[in-house]
Amino acid sequence: MNIKLRYFASVRETLNISHEMATIPAGVTTVGAIRAHLVARGGIWAEALGVNKPLRTAYNQAMCGPDQVVEAGAELAFFPPVTGG
């Protein structure tokens, strides 16, 4: 499935991108599974999105948890707990 991924604040700074269109493999259907899939890219992906990072997620601009099911064409955002200032 294809989804839009958005990255904010320190996640964006670490990855050096603010968004991407991603093709997610079959069977990777939840926010938590997508995060694990991205971490598996290794390097800066593991650094920015690793399980040791306290991150918030939003599915189609609504806060969500790791069990949220993701559908094709959706937008998924990752950001640290506190943004702005």
Rank of each mutant, 00 (worst) to 15 (best):
17 I>M: 15
10 S>E: 15
32 G>H: 07
50 G>C: 10
69 V>I: 14
12 R>H: 10
34 I>N: 04
6 R>M: 14
62 A>Y: 05
11 V>S: 05
74 A>G: 11
24 I>C: 00
2 N>V: 14
31 V>Y: 00
51 V>G: 07
60 N>E: 05
10 S>K: 15
53 K>L: 08
12 R>F: 07
44 I>S: 14
23 T>D: 11
42 G>V: 06
16 N>T: 10
3 I>G: 02
5 L>N: 04
24 I>E: 00
52 N>E: 15
42 G>L: 09
8 F>H: 11
45 W>I: 05
38 L>I: 05
29 T>Y: 01
5 L>P: 02
81 P>C: 11
32 G>M: 06
42 G>E: 07
60 N>P: 00
27 G>M: 11
38 L>N: 02
31 V>K: 03
81 P>R: 13
49 L>I: 09
23 T>V: 07
55 L>Y: 06
4 K>C: 11
56 R>V: 12
74 A>N: 02
38 L>W: 09
51 V>H: 08
2 N>Y: 09
19 H>S: 15
46 A>D: 14
13 E>C: 11
10 S>H: 14
72 A>N: 04
85 G>L: 11
24 I>M: 00
50 G>Y: 06
72 A>D: 04
1 M>Y: 00
47 E>L: 12
62 A>F: 09
5 L>T: 07
78 F>C: 04
58 A>V: 05
62 A>I: 13
20 E>Q: 06
60 N>Q: 10
80 P>M: 11
19 H>M: 06
1 M>P: 10
80 P>A: 09
26 A>C: 03
28 V>T: 10
30 T>P: 12
61 Q>L: 10
75 E>W: 03
9 A>C: 15
34 I>K: 07
63 M>L: 15
6 R>G: 05
78 F>L: 06
83 T>N: 06
44 I>P: 05
62 A>K: 13
32 G>V: 09
41 R>C: 03
56 R>H: 12
82 V>H: 13
26 A>Y: 01
62 A>E: 15
81 P>F: 13
54 P>G: 03
12 R>P: 05
84 G>F: 12
58 A>Y: 04
14 T>L: 14
17 I>T: 15
36 A>Y: 00
8 F>G: 08
77 A>N: 02
52 N>M: 11
24 I>R: 04
75 E>L: 13
68 Q>H: 11
36 A>P: 00
31 V>P: 04
46 A>F: 02
26 A>F: 05
28 V>H: 04
37 H>R: 00
84 G>C: 12
61 Q>F: 13
76 L>P: 03
53 K>T: 08
33 A>V: 01
83 T>E: 06
55 L>C: 10
38 L>P: 01
67 D>H: 13
21 M>E: 13
6 R>F: 08
67 D>R: 08
71 E>A: 15
43 G>K: 02
71 E>D: 13
49 L>K: 06
44 I>H: 08
40 A>W: 02
78 F>M: 06
83 T>P: 04
38 L>V: 01
52 N>D: 15
14 T>H: 02
42 G>I: 07
29 T>W: 04
78 F>R: 03
33 A>T: 05
39 V>W: 09
2 N>C: 03
55 L>E: 08
4 K>A: 05
34 I>Y: 01
52 N>Y: 10
60 N>S: 05
35 R>F: 00
85 G>T: 13
40 A>Q: 12
50 G>D: 12
32 G>I: 10
58 A>G: 06
5 L>F: 07
31 V>G: 01
51 V>L: 09
13 E>K: 15
74 A>D: 14
83 T>C: 13
48 A>R: 01
